[in-house]
């Protein structure tokens, strides 16, 4: 299989397979969660659960000073990693074209130079994340094989995308194919790893926030 065939496969059957596993897998995971149900809270509410749910959904994106002061680097790195990933994923013209083909609408892209720099930062940030995971005793203690798999499948698309864009290591076409394949790997792995948090984080925040909202406490 030459580079063009590989690319064609990655843009065709490969993407389809990955997309099916991703969408079906994620739906399965979400339904597995939702199906377990939740009893209504009978205690007299002091505030609005919906308000609290929404507030936490957003507010939890900001760190609390109490914990930020203890682990500023890890937390900042977490932001860099996530924001970097999102910027590269959602603000790069070719990626927007992909979303456009699925959603039917697009949005303006950022200059490629910015994406390139953000990509590089994201890679460094992911490497830093690994260093933290290996060096921080709590993270090392908590880490399972799944954490390293998830790290690797997250790094690969960013790394291969960066290498492809900068024409490094492999011929562009091959690297582009590898990039797409790595994205597909990410899509396949995501539903069966902690990467489900890309969706379930919202449910988790909602549930905690809803409860807090009902109690009129902060969360």
């Amino acid at each position: 299989m030459d580079a063009n065939e590989l690319l064609a496969w990655a843009r065709g059957p490969g993407f389809d397979i990955a997309l099916i596993i991703f969408v079906a897998g994620m739906l399965l995971r979400l339904l597995e969660v939702i199906s377990l149900g939740k009893k209504p809270d009978l205690s007299a509410p002091r505030g609005s659960g919906v308000e609290g749910g929404l507030r936490t959904l957003l507010a939890r994106s900001l760190p609390r000073k109490a914990v930020f002061d203890r682990e500023p680097l890890r937390i900042i790195n977490g932001y860099v990693l996530h924001l970097g990933f999102f910027i590269v994923l959602f603000m790069y013209g070719p990626h927007i074209a992909l979303f456009q083909s699925i959603l039917g609408f697009g949005w303006p892209a950022l200059p490629s130079g910015v994406i390139d720099a953000v990509g590089a930062i994201t890679i460094l940030s992911l490497v830093a994340a690994l260093v933290f995971r290996l060096n921080n005793k709590v993270m090392r203690f908590l880490s399972t094989g799944g954490d390293y798999v998830a790290w690797a499948v997250t790094l690969l698309p960013v790394l291969t995308g960066y290498l492809a864009y900068n024409h490094l290591l492999l011929p562009y076409t091959t690297m582009l194919a590898v990039h797409l394949l790595s994205v597909e790997l990410l899509m396949v792995v995501a539903p069966f790893s902690k990467l489900t948090h890309m969706f379930s984080f919202a449910m988790a925040r909602w549930h905690q926030g809803y409860k807090a909202g009902q109690r009129g406490v902060e969360s």
């Binding site: 377990l36 149900g37 203690f141 908590l142 954490d147 449910m203």
Partner: peptide
């Protein structure tokens, strides 16, 4: 229940 399941499925072992 659903909240507990959502918590487990959202944990990223950040510590």
């Amino acid at each position: 229940d659903a909240p507990i399941a959502s918590f487990f499925s959202a944990c990223v072992h950040c510590g």
